[in-house]
Computed example of a mutant assay.
Amino acid sequence: MAALKRVVDSRWLFHRDISRTSASRFFKTSSSCRTVMPAWVIDKYGGNDVLRFTKDARFPIINYPNEVIVKVCAAGLNPIDVSMRGGYGASTMSMKRDPLNLKQKENEFPLILGRDVSGVIMECGLDVKYFRERDEVWAAIPPWKHGSLAEFVVLSANEVSLKPKSLSHAEAAAIPYVATTTWSALVNTGGLTKDNCAKKRVLILGGSGGVGTFAIQMLKAWGAHVTVTCSQNAERFVRGLGADHVVDYTAGPVDVPLAALDKFDLVLDNVGGSTERWALNLLKPWSGAKYVTLVTPFLQNTDALGIADGMMKTAATVASKALKYLVKGVHYRWGFFAPSGPALDEIREMVDAGQIHAVVEETFTFAQVPQAFAKVENGHARGKTVVQIDKWDT
């Protein structure tokens, strides 16, 4: 498996055939000579007006021996970037940045957003063995770290993977965050793998968004039967990605036509709200079937109640719901984003094998970051919004 290669195949470091000529222009200046860089930052939470371009953002440094500095070529935007711009998850993210809560306000701003990155490694920490300078890589950046809307970003090597050779940087930047979120939900939480997925029936509620479009492709590559809900004008789009059956949510309540279908082995919920009241009834009882929702109140709870009380309320909520549905023979689970270089290793192989394709709806220049945010904020996307950062205007 791809993830195991990080541990057992040390010879791979010396026999790779990766072209680095295109990356050479990024390494004219050593990081030791740099103190600032261009970036889009926010100094407070709010709307698009809080986005500020600066050429004087602090240059990232390696603080731990397992970290790498990446020269950003392209960044992908996600709905969570818009939410974080408005302050979503501020309490929890600030705590992650400063666990002892000693300098929470100092560390909070200026904040760089952007959760997807595709770029080139500029510098490696002393303990980094799997990567070398000038490797082309991609990664999903945890929300508690500074993001990719900057010339450089520092990441743990465990969060990074070699970029698929078949994709450009702009295409690669459309995948990591939704890919690792989907992987966490379906594999880590849902228990699906390429070896047990064949002939399983999976329902994706909200199939035309970022996670939905990636999940369709991954599940079809593994042999599952995939049903999705989406609007009528997205039906051709999701069928083109491999969806077997499509239910139009604009035609009326979707629970009625879904209830007429055969029961499902797993439901992936990207919609939330009232769906919980009926979605679990669509699962095969007493068969190990799971409902996995990515719409959870965890960050809302911690934002409203503080870390301790918010976590207590969250734990009580998920425990009561899990018990409620367990007695009915189905499993209730919450799914969360989890950064994972090894997961991206697996996904890279699927991309290069032609099983998964990047879905880019629109690409913006670095100078157009506010327009890119407005695009994501408008919703109803048919693919990802990407910012090309290695070609910015001075």
Rank of each mutant, 00 (worst) to 15 (best):
147 G>L: 06
75 A>N: 03
46 G>H: 07
117 V>I: 14
160 V>P: 03
311 M>F: 01
11 R>N: 12
340 S>P: 02
328 K>D: 11
25 R>K: 15
347 I>P: 00
376 V>L: 11
135 D>C: 08
176 P>Y: 11
373 F>L: 05
121 I>P: 01
172 A>C: 12
76 G>L: 05
238 V>K: 03
277 R>Q: 14
97 R>N: 05
77 L>N: 01
58 R>M: 03
66 N>T: 13
296 T>I: 13
17 D>A: 10
143 P>K: 00
186 L>T: 03
385 T>L: 04
351 V>M: 09
96 K>L: 15
252 G>L: 11
168 S>Y: 09
4 L>M: 11
50 V>P: 00
201 R>S: 11
392 W>T: 08
227 T>Q: 04
5 K>N: 15
184 S>A: 15
224 A>K: 09
43 D>K: 15
356 I>H: 04
29 T>Q: 14
347 I>G: 04
92 T>I: 08
374 A>Y: 00
262 D>I: 08
348 R>G: 00
59 F>T: 08
358 A>S: 14
34 R>K: 15
171 E>D: 15
366 F>S: 06
262 D>S: 12
128 V>N: 07
222 W>G: 01
106 E>V: 12
102 L>C: 05
16 R>S: 13
325 Y>L: 07
190 G>I: 08
207 G>R: 02
234 A>F: 03
151 E>S: 14
18 I>H: 14
5 K>A: 08
301 N>G: 00
125 G>L: 11
149 L>D: 02
363 T>C: 14
288 G>E: 10
49 D>A: 12
354 G>R: 14
114 G>H: 04
188 N>P: 01
145 K>S: 12
104 Q>R: 15
172 A>R: 02
256 V>D: 13
130 Y>H: 15
275 T>H: 03
159 E>K: 00
100 L>A: 12
13 L>N: 14
319 A>R: 10
246 V>H: 06
80 I>A: 14
246 V>F: 01
389 I>D: 02
246 V>T: 14
363 T>M: 07
223 G>K: 13
366 F>Q: 02
